[in-house]
Write a protein that binds this DNA or RNA. Structure first.
Lengths: 335, 335
DNA sequence: CTGTTAGCGCATTCAC
DNA sequence: GTGAATGCGCTAACAG
């Protein structure tokens, strides 16, 4: 592999001159510049980015820490990041997290080892110590779908979203409303918990007593959601509506309904959460939280922070939209 | 940021000793090792990977070149890569391609600039010159869902898959079978073209004349597929079955059928291609091409090649499975 | 076992 | 305008 020295030799110049040409330094005569470019061409030379990184102290790379792409919402966010980053000169290195210990290891090393110029964290809230570490680091960090008072973050209000979804059902006349979700406590970001809080709040504000039998949570995934939904549908007094913690689970609910012959939305209304593509496919009413946009915003804030570190952490809240589709309907039945 | 020198100073040793400790070199006395570790701890020191990379010539990084995550199949393949790479000591840097020129630029520089130790290319077939370049490079390269005789590749036989899907419909009694897909010529990998070839072959082998009216292609995406399907369904003599070039398009066909009141599978059978999760959701009969596994295999072959470069390029063909679900049915109608 | 030294390939002073 | 020298932080001989 040719080095800058080889180019210099061939072009009969010093390596500094080659470096100048590479970096578009204007103080090089047209003649020598041409000679250098010819040598570069002849040797098929490409500057070694690693050497450049060590020398300049910049890597032109952004590190993205995120869970394995098991959930469509992560993918959607990553797509936004991908797209926004393409507009910049930065590359992206992906750190996939499968366990809390993996997460902690990245959280510990990445802000201190100069491998990346900036860090983007998706759906993985740091604890106070970790956040402190990020905040102190020379490397700017932005959280997407996670909050910490000391760090820049892009957020959606899950509580509000939960309220919105429940409110929608209530306004349709439903009173027997179920909440079905992942476990409320998880090793990563427990968005289900916040959505549940919103659900509870909406009930309360509307004077609807909370029925513990209508609250169920379990392992994530469509299959499990289906099982949980079956349980709900088999209650003596089944709910007339189910609010699922995310779209995938809502689709599981639809599965259960179909198999049990429960007609949606006639006999049962279903609302999801996220606004992933699958929701569109299944004509599911859901809360759109602008996943893609969260990735774009995260990148933009990070890129800005790379130039001038904000003295106080920025906080951006994304809006939430109820998308009413075919799985919800007025509840008119009298029992 | 502390350097190895700071640690050495604090521990009262030479930097070589610190380096030895960092690299678990056994020839360090327990005592000094302990002292060094204490200093590392005290300074919260983390070795600079860039410096290490420059010094060793290894980056412990794999470059993944792939199209923007616009299609679920890319995501699924990336997931496989992500998972398999996590088992190794390698990191992944993502190069997202949105246009042929972007692709060409990565293809040109990446094999020569030592930014990564190995390259994985997903669904982007190189031309002869580019392949030559990869083959000559010191950096091993593996193609996933792309073929070139000079390079290692993980493949599925799209022609065979197209045959398989068509064959399935034929064996169900269908004779009026449509093929609906993306444009057969695309800037990236034209898998639709191969699947179309399989379709034609199956027809031929079964003595079914090809009806040009039953062949339609256009812009990708669910919406467009729906429009194309509508066109087919409105023909004077509409097809009794539609084989779509991929699952997303098949779902578009289902949309069209639903809206036109054409019952699937009673009035129309539909087959997709890919085996993405969405196919499962929509109960779509499809050809599963083991997308996830292709990513895993690609990583494994690459990692092996990192140790010992195969003298002759490896080629792995993934199997294809017809998954018969609810959108296909025997054709018994007599017209 | 351990310290000194010489690069890795480039950018960047500082003289000329 | 241009070249020689220095250093980025680390690893890897090479001595001792």
């Amino acid at each position: 592999m040719p080095t800058i020295r080889d180019v210099a030799k061939l072009a009969n110049v010093g390596i500094a001159t080659v470096s100048r040409v590479l970096n578009n330094n204007p103080s090089v005569s047209d003649e020598t510049r041409k000679a250098v470019l010819a040598a570069i061409e002849a040797l098929d030379y490409t500057p070694n980015p690693i050497a450049r990184q060590l020398s300049t102290g910049r890597t032109l790379t952004v590190g993205v820490i995120l869970p394995y792409l098991t959930m469509p919402s992560y993918v959607e966010r990553l797509r936004g990041v991908q797209h926004a980053l393409a507009e910049t000169e930065y590359n992206m290195i992906l750190f996939s997290v499968g366990s809390p210990s993996e997460r902690d290891s990245y959280f510990k090393d990445l802000p201190r080892n100069n491998l990346v110029d900036g860090i983007l964290i998706i759906s993985l809230p740091p604890n106070d110590n970790q956040a402190e570490r990020f905040a102190r680091a020379e490397i700017p960090t932005v959280l997407i779908d996670a909050y910490h008072s000391q760090l820049c973050c892009i957020l959606t209000d899950d509580v509000k979203g939960g309220k919105l979804a429940t409110q929608h059902l209530i306004s349709l006349g439903h009173r027997k409303i179920s909440f079905l979700s992942d476990f409320l406590e998880t090793p990563f970001r427990p968005s289900a918990r916040y959505r549940y809080q919103g659900y509870r709040k909406a009930l309360e504000e509307n004077g609807i007593p909370f029925n513990p039998a209508y609250h169920i949570s379990g392992e994530r995934g469509r299959e499990n959601a289906k099982k949980m939904a079956n349980h709900l549908l088999n209650l003596d007094d089944p709910p007339s509506a189910i609010f699922a913690g995310n779209d995938i689970q809502a689709i599981g609910v639809l599965d259960a309904a179909r198999e049990s012959g429960v007609k949606v939305p006639d006999d049962l209304s279903v609302v999801g959460f996220d606004g992933i593509r699958d929701a569109e496919y299944t004509n599911l009413t859901t809360i759109d939280q602008h996943l893609y946009q969260s990735g774009v915003d995260g990148v933009n804030i990070l890129i800005d922070a790379l130039d001038i570190r904000p003295e106080t952490p920025l906080e951006k809240r994304l809006s939430l939209n109820l998308i009413a589709r075919g799985t919800t309907q007025t509840f008119s039945q009298k029992t």
